[in-house]
Design a protein around this nucleic acid. Structure first.
Length: 854
RNA sequence: GGGUGAUUAGCUCAUUUGGCUAGAGCGCCUCAUUGACGUUGAGGAGGUGAGAGGUUCGAAUCCUCUAUCGCCCACCA
């Protein structure tokens, strides 16, 4: 074996991934308890972003760990057609070509976007491979695959039959740039300073006037009433009368409605049912007509010619000017209110009345609320549960209709002779169909993408058909960013329960957003986006995974730290060189077997690795990834490399050395799959791949021997510390007295502190500086002058020890502490105090020697 | 307007039922070294845990208030 000095990831990663993939190692084994994670499908048309990097690191770590633990494991890949997201990109393409969506039919558009996406599809999949995701590729599902479409239709039908689907003219959030409606959740509210304009609406006899306050004067041309609070003394006498609507030649009634807050504005509200959700409701209550004055293109319509065709904000200016000119303005004030914007293009969302398909969400939400309250689904972090409950409790009906072609067509047809007669039918490729001699025209809208992706877990596992993968539903954990808790996780819970009567997953782990190095949100416009693939090619896939996982806790947004990726890279290299060293020590075709510990170090490393295995199991089962990764890191670096390998240079035990490498590779594999498998493939005695090897188990050792090694470690650290502190650059002899731990491990001690000392010898006449390590009879053979020079160091140490002893003594003298603290804690304190006292005595001894010599 | 998270070492962050001397990575300082690894080794410095008060034998952790920053939700014209 002749491995290069440093690990070069790019030389091995593609081959190793190829090896796994071609030998079907990602495929569920069919043996053992099922364990599944469904990858939140990345946009088929895009590249992976840093958040995907984190997602893959977390999910793949769990999957690999469980696979090694013998589970029948499925990590299920998918690709998202990402309806609106992709549509926006594609429309820009069309624009470049000087075309628009109105130049094509739905079918034409759909097939054009399909081709557009198809060209890009491979990228995201290659990137998932580069990240080492052990996905079962043969089970890949695209969100427009036939089975997704069919299940979506069936679900729609089922909900329709249950009376949960309805079509209705309702106020929808409409983006006039993208010309589509949105769900409530897809719009961004921003608090902005705006003006509250006051406008006089004169009575018919011009004797009096009522002043309304509005932030959107352009909608006044669609006013159909003025509303006041029924008990408002200022306006009571006007209720039932009629006023003149300025600029428009119309008369509108003054009505009373409880909704009006007499303390806001002027206490009189203009009512525009076509352009405001509250006004819409008031309009319904009072049977008012709806006059649409803003078109779906965002331009004024049904208004006097001077305003017709104007953009909304333009119209606002012109209307205010016209009101001013005609003396209808009665002042203005500024206020902060919240304005809805399109989350994509930032256009102000217009509330417009439109016929759309809605899903009654409350019955579905209710079930989810109950099941969350019953504790059947667990959230990490738990704090998100409360927010989700609040969201669900206040959820309004879900607008499923989108006016874009890139999506699953809504399978519904309308009777051309009876607008209220809608039928469910999946012949969506036909513009019209005939049923019982009646002609039905198809719905042109498509579904909100989240409606189908909300069914993802049971669709992808073919649960409803009882297919081969149905044993993997529900999945074990839904791991995703907290930013899609509402749009996705909540919908999967609702639809999963509704359709399958089961929770779609057992746990929900929500990771935080990965921000830039300074904790700021990454965005293209800020130019601070970090591409995960850049990190992978610079430092390797394993390094990236370990780096992005480090120091991260559930749900917490956090800065990306390249330094942690570097630490990950260093880890891989350390592992590489550990393996290089161990392999160099091996006899030909050495066969690994149960280790037979001989030396203290052997027992100790077995104990330490046993502990590491246990901790990793515990931490990962609680989704404490960063802590688990830290255990792996220190297990390799501190325990195996710094102590055990160093010790093995003095006392070589092939058995244990090989076993230690073996276990280290196994426990590191879920975190750093490539480098561990690469090394594994160089070990001559394994035929199987590490990815499907068994998770290591506990091995017997002798606790007393292990703790003897702990003492030796302490002693060695103490010697190194003191040697560093001693004045001058000279090396000194070390003398040991009646100390069996030292005498029996002399070669080991020599190797571990060899550099710091001249020699180590037995003595019957101790002299010099005593090592202040528990139980040791060892001295640095230094003369009085050197000891003298060292005095201040000793005094500093002594005072520190005294300080610590004092606080321990104080604690132990407190009777409440003795009574109430756990006995084990008290015992530890007592033990510690004894040790400190011993150190103090030794230090004082030294200082006494110094004193007496002066 | 309503929630919610954060504030810990120079930087980025851990610390899960309150309990070892509050940890890690990177950075910093000293020293070392040609064969496992400089993507190294040994040692070290660095924190009154935002501020104030409270509960407790014991608080970064629980409670109250204050300050600053962030995020989410939200149909008050």
């Amino acid at each position: 074996m002749n491995l290069p000095k440093t690990y070069q990831p790019d030389q091995y990663e593609p081959n190793i991934y190829g090896l796994w993939e071609t030998s079907n190692s990602f495929r569920p084994s069919g043996v053992g308890e099922p364990y599944s994670i469904i990858l939140p499908p990345p946009n088929a048309n895009g590249n992976l972003h840093i958040g995907h990097g984190l997602t893959v690191a977390l999910q793949d770590t769990l999957v690999r760990w469980q696979r090694m633990k013998g589970k029948d494991t499925l990590y299920l890949p998918g690709a998202d057609h990402a309806g609106f997201e992709t549509w926006v990109v594609y429309e820009k393409e069309l624009q470049k070509q000087g075309k628009s969506r109105f130049d094509f039919s739905r079918e034409q558009l759909y097939s054009k976007v399909w081709d557009f996406v198809d060209k890009q599809r491979g990228n995201m999949e290659l990137q998932l491979r580069a990240l080492g995701a052990s996905l079962s590729w043969e089970h890949m599902v695209f969100t427009l695959d036939e089975k997704v479409v069919q299940t979506t239709y069936n679900t729609f039908k089922q909900l329709w039959d249950k009376g949960l689907i309805y079509r209705g003219e309702k106020m929808v959030n409409y983006c006039t740039t993208h010309q589509t409606g949105f769900a409530d959740i897809e719009i961004n509210h921003k608090n902005e300073k705006s003006k509250l304009w006051k406008i006089a609406y004169p009575s018919l006899d011009k004797v009096t006037e009522i002043i309304v306050a509005t932030t959107r004067p352009e909608t006044m041309l669609g006013d159909v009433a003025v509303a006041v609070h029924p008990d408002d003394e200022r306006y009571k006498h006007l209720i039932g009368t009629t006023v003149q609507l300025p600029l428009a030649d119309r008369e509108i009634p003054v009505i009373a409605d409880e909704y009006v807050d007499p303390n806001f504005g002027t206490g009189a509200v203009k009512i525009t049912p076509a352009h405001d959700p509250n006004d819409f409701e008031i309009g319904e209550r009072h049977n008012l007509p709806r006059i649409q004055v803003i078109g779906f293109d965002g331009k004024m319509t049904n208004v006097p010619s001077q305003f017709a065709g104007l953009e909304v904000l333009d119209a606002r200016k012109r209307i205010l000017a016209a009101l001013e000119a005609a003396d209808f303005r009665r002042g203005e004030e500024t206020l902060e209110n919240s304005i809805a914007h399109c989350y994509k293009c930032n256009t102000i969302i217009q509330p417009l009345v439109k016929d759309q398909w809605f899903l009654k969400t409350q019955p579905l939400a209710k079930r989810v609320i109950d099941i969350i309250n019953s504790g059947e689904v667990k959230f990490y972090p738990e704090s998100r549960t409360k927010a989700l409950l609040y969201y669900l409790e206040n959820l309004r009906d879900w607008n499923l209709s989108r006016q874009i072609a890139w999506g699953i067509p809504i399978p519904a047809f309308q009777n051309t002779a009876d607008a209220n007669d809608w039928v469910f039918d999946t012949r969506v490729d036909q513009k019209s169909i005939e049923i019982d001699g009646k002609v039905y025209r198809r719905e042109e809208d498509t579904f909100d993408t989240w409606f189908s992706s909300g069914q993802w877990p049971f669709i992808t596992t073919d649960f409803l058909d009882g297919g081969e993968l149905s044993r993997f539903y529900p999945s074990n954990v839904m791991e995703t960013g907290h930013d899609i808790l509402y749009p996705w996780v909540s919908r999967m819970l609702m639809l999963g329960l509704e359709v399958t009567d089961k929770l779609p997953f057992k746990d929900v782990y929500l990771h935080g957003l990965v921000n830039d190095a300074h904790g700021k949100k990454m965005s293209k416009s800020k130019g601070n986006v970090i591409n995960p693939m850049d990190m992978v090619s610079k430092y390797g896939s394993d390094a990236f995974r370990m780096g992005i996982m480090a120091s991260r806790s559930a749900g917490q947004d956090q800065a990306f730290s390249e330094a942690k990726v570097i630490a990950g890279r260093n880890f891989c290299n350390k592992l590489w060189n550990t393996a290089r060293f161990i392999e160099s020590k091996l006899l030909d075709m050495y066969k690994s077997s149960e280790p037979t510990p001989i030396s203290l170090a052997d027992h100790w490393i077995i104990r330490e690795l046993n502990n590491s295995i246990k901790s990793i199991d515990e931490l990962l089962s609680q989704y404490r990834f960063a802590e688990a990764a830290e255990v792996v890191y220190h297990s390799l670096w501190d325990n195996l490399a710094d102590w055990y390998i160093e010790s093995s240079k003095a006392e070589l035990n092939h058995d244990v050395l090989v076993w230690a490498l073996d276990v280290t590779l196994r426990i590191s594999h879920p975190f750093a799959p490539f480098v561990t498998e690469t090394i594994w493939q160089t070990l001559p005695w394994y035929n199987e791949q590490l990815i499907i090897a068994d998770w290591p188990t506990h091995v017997n050792f002798d606790e007393i021997s292990a703790s003897q090694f702990d003492r030796l470690k302490n002693f060695i650290t103490e010697v190194r510390f003191v040697a560093n502190e001693l004045p001058g650059n000279e090396k000194y002899d070390l003398l040991y007295g009646n100390d069996s731990l030292i005498s029996e491990n002399l070669e080991l001690v020599k190797h571990l502190v060899g550099f710091y000392i001249k020699s180590i010898d037995h003595t019957d006449q101790p002299r010099g500086l005593r090592i202040a390590s528990e139980g040791r009879e060892v001295w640095f053979d230094i003369d009085k002058n050197t000891l003298n020079d060292h005095q201040s160091n000793l005094e500093v140490r002594l005072s520190k020890e005294h300080f610590r002893a004092k606080s321990l003594r104080k604690r132990l003298e407190n009777s409440s502490y003795i009574e109430k603290a756990p006995p084990q804690l008290v015992e530890e304190s007592q033990k510690e105090l004894r040790e400190i006292t011993e150190r103090i005595n030794k230090l004082q001894e030294e200082l006494k020697v110094i004193d007496s010599s002066n």
